[in-house]
Design a protein around this nucleic acid. Sequence first.
DNA 1: CTCCGATCGCTCGGTTCCGAGTATTTGCGG
DNA 2: CCGCAAATACTCGGAACCGAGCGATCGGAG
Lengths: 185, 185
Amino acid sequence: MKNPLGMAVLGLLLESPLHPHAMAATLRERGMDRAFKVTTGSLYDVVRALMREGWIEARETVKVGARPERTIYGLTEVGREEFTRWVDRLVREPQPEFPKFLSAVSYLGALGPAGAVEALRERAERLRASLEEMRGSHRDALEQVPRLFVVEVEYAVRMAEAELGWVEEIIGDVESGRLPWPEES
Amino acid sequence: MKNPLGMAVLGLLLESPLHPHAMAATLRERGMDRAFKVTTGSLYDVVRALMREGWIEARETVKVGARPERTIYGLTEVGREEFTRWVDRLVREPQPEFPKFLSAVSYLGALGPAGAVEALRERAERLRASLEEMRGSHRDALEQVPRLFVVEVEYAVRMAEAELGWVEEIIGDVESGRLPWPEES
DNA sequence: CTCCGATCGCTCGGTTCCGAGTATTTGCGG
DNA sequence: CCGCAAATACTCGGAACCGAGCGATCGGAG
């Protein structure tokens, strides 16, 4: 059980039993697909895995018309406990992560001073746009639900701001010569 | 070609031809394994993929003693170009990422106010430690190589600082009641 | 009433990932 | 000079991932 999508599923079932398709739909409706990579294929794999572990159980399988059956899953007692344990662990222990931008920055030199500035400028622009959007949906959401259910957006905003700040600073450093390009390249 | 490890490989071969094992060793020596997930299995897969694309080519296969053969790979002209294109793309376009902490924070509510504070405290502690370590290795590295080759550490530090700041703030908000827990739970 | 696009709900299978295992060689403490 | 840990170099196969596809149904425009 590594896939965080499993955590999302447990979190949903905490409220009420659901069938996989409904899980995906709900997750997307609530905008949680910004925090969890929800793809149909993985979802069914994850549900199967949660079954194997005994953290969820099939409650009933309903057949409406001639459509594929829907199997409705609910949380077990163990699942309820494991869910909190899971959240707790991920909050406590920073995991080694490998964001693509970190990789790219490791080879920023390859772009040359002019190229680097140009590319960073475009990133900055895009970051500003996505920040605007996040702030908007945060405002909207706050009118519907308590702040606690929106903290993850606040976190995302904060991180994006930090990145934007850094990008802008580096642009300045390159242009002012505080970040020189060594020789060749 | 999705795996960023491929980018790392190209970046290394830019300097000189290498065999896979040496790539892994060099990557780790330089601490680049903080920016790239370097696992042996994936490495050989990635190298094979780069071959398929024609971005690298086998230069020679040497046999020393009775050890497994080492196949030494070098960059092609195409590979050199694709490398910069790759870096450029990743710098320009923020990719949707799914850090585990973001997932966890989405369900912070599940821990209850006291539990959340406790867990966040521990995270803060660990973040401070890892920041200390990063700052140290940044200082050390700066004495050996130009700043350009260490910018990715500066980025990592900046992001960790932002996260730490946010975590501390949330702890404060929970304790002061600015982030209340709605009803039950 | 009939056609078409959207929605429903899931399966399938090809890629990708990656850790455990394998087999040799070198270095070095005793 | 013996033995054992560390380094050298890669292979293998199971697991995870995920998008394309599939077959059905529903809603509503004409």
